[in-house]
Design a protein around this nucleic acid. Structure first.
Lengths: 336, 336
DNA sequence: TTGTATGCGTTATCAG
DNA sequence: CTGATAACGCATACAA
């Protein structure tokens, strides 16, 4: 690590003052074109790199965004982080990550840490467990700290969020199967108090109502989580005798777990039983059993989220409610 | 964003000097216990939070580590990032991420960006494409910038890396199948010039040699990448007539793609053809076809990597070569 | 054990 | 258009 060259060195080298060099480097309007070029060359020649710490100390900005997702093992969140990073890096922001493992306490700790690290803003997939204390989030909101939510929101703080229209997506897919004549359908969701489940459930109910069919709540299954394994276990541990025509999972990887367990029980898919997921993760079309699902356009979601956050950072007037992104039903072999 | 309280405020509040407060907060030995407690209380009361930028400017440390992986869509790398983050957060480091998409240029850009952001060190899964320029890495090495490699290394710069013993893992699994009498085995790898492929290939050859069987190089297939889709396509596009007893993929998700494509062609697994992967990703045991694979103990790998990097940061004497982590063959249904 | 003073590298303000 | 200088908030070497 050789001693780094500072703006002062560039000043000395060019015979200009520190201030001028700084402005020149930042492309200020009030510096002559000629000077700017001269400074740029000199800086280049000396191998000058801005010291980010000094810069941040002065500007109070780090150009780093913190991002918290529940569980990186879920490919959906992997893709999410990937897209967020891509969007951010293009705008010269860095992305620092944390994983909450569906635990509000971990999430809270991560948020504090991020803020203590001086991130300019936070993107969070809320852990919307109603049992837990949410005052931290409320405080952030009231202090108008730049935090935006993606893919879910806190029930009591439904602001600055970008998410798929889960209710409509679920409505569409449920309705389409009702129309085909299937009535005995099971829904494997996570905790029903959570937004991602409850919104979907609303869609389901709406579809039944629209079809004039009564919805039997016993067809809802609350799994122990929303992971591959949770889906797998739900099927393995099911002791009832009802064999639904279609099983809807809350997301794709859970659907994969469900399919796997069904196969282990000797069921054929889609002949004996149909399965549908939600998300349309990148290889959903190429699974052993290509997966029927509802596409979330995750890339679009991420782009909107980043835009929303950066607009907030730049003090622009932004939409502050819940922006819902349209979904698309995709029928594949798992539920032909 | 209310005006933040600084160390100066705490000093004023306690009647102590700025220097004393700083030391007290940092737990310096030469400050009285009593004073430390007093300062801590006062700081707490005032809601004081250290300004990370000032701190960094002074210490020249950010407590942020940059991490570059090829492709977050691959669950294996997802798990890797997860473990790295966990290890780092426990030691009060932040993890900033970048995705290189197997592209050396992107990787180089990310590394520069990270350094310009003032990361204390970098963890990288090398994009070991020999076609590309690697001088940046060499320079970093020569300047002894704290960069460590995980899961692969640059052929010409085989230092500070932690990876699974790919050669031995491949040797073990190949040998075990040779022992069972299978001889017609196909190996679907990525670019053979790359470490991850070439090391595995050495293991294969060694196993054949040990068994006294001649190895036919035409059984090696270079896929277009190492993704699910690459595996899938390799099978779909295969026009040859040779039907191997066993197909070995370079990693689990590729094996999954291969299985999927084989199934689409009407093959039964493992009856008609066996498939093995590499990595043992977290749900490999619960796939529709539970996957035979070689476990990489990714958690251990990540822990070792973080330890190695942090030791370097603390100036401790560290092992500087290639640390190989032992692998374990796991036989499951896909290759019974 | 505590206080003082200086430096860290930029940005920004205010003169010139 | 450019120069000088004061922040920014903390750590640390040196005094006391």
């Amino acid at each position: 690590m050789k001693k780094s060259v500072t703006i002062k060195d560039v000043a000395a080298y060019t015979g200009l003052s520190v201030g001028t060099v700084s402005m020149a480097l930042n492309g200020s309007e009030r510096i002559a074109q000629k000077t700017k070029k001269y400074v740029a060359m000199a800086a280049d020649e000396l191998g000058f790199r801005k010291n980010p710490f000094a810069r941040s100390l002065s500007t109070k900005k780090s150009r780093i965004i913190g991002c918290i997702v529940p569980d990186i093992t879920n490919q959906f969140y992997g893709e999410m982080v990937g897209h967020l990073q891509k969007e951010l890096v293009e705008r010269d922001y860095g992305l620092i990550v944390g994983f909450a493992n569906e635990d509000r306490n971990q999430e809270a700790r991560l948020i504090s840490q991020f803020i203590d690290r001086g991130v300019d803003g936070i993107i969070s997939v809320p852990v919307t467990d109603t049992k837990h204390d949410i005052s931290q989030i409320r405080t952030l909101y009231e202090d108008s700290f730049p935090i935006v939510f993606i893919s879910a929101y806190y029930k009591d703080i439904p602001y600055y969020t970008v998410m798929a229209d889960l209710e409509d997506g679920m409505y569409q897919i449920t309705a389409s199967f009702l129309k085909k004549g299937y009535k005995n359908m099971a829904f494997v969701f996570g905790d029903l108090n959570l937004i991602p489940s409850s919104e979907r459930l609303n869609g389901v109910k709406r579809a039944y109502a629209a079809a004039g069919i009564e919805f039997d709540p016993s067809n809802i299954f609350q799994a122990s989580g929303v992971t591959y394994l949770a889906g797998y276990s739900t099927v393995v541990n099911y002791t009832g005798h009802n064999k639904p025509d279609v099983i809807f999972a809350i997301n794709d990887i859970m659907a994969m777990g469900i399919i796997s367990a069904l196969r282990a029980k000797g069921m054929r898919i889609p002949e004996d039983i149909k399965v549908a997921g939600f998300d349309d993760i990148s290889n959903a079309a190429f699974l052993e059993t290509p997966l029927t699902t509802v596409s979330q356009s995750i890339e679009l979601m991420c782009r909107e989220t980043v835009t929303l956050l950066l607009n907030r950072l730049e003090g622009k007037n932004t939409f502050s409610g819940i922006k819902k992104i349209q979904t698309t039903v995709i029928i594949r072999e798992s539920a032909y």
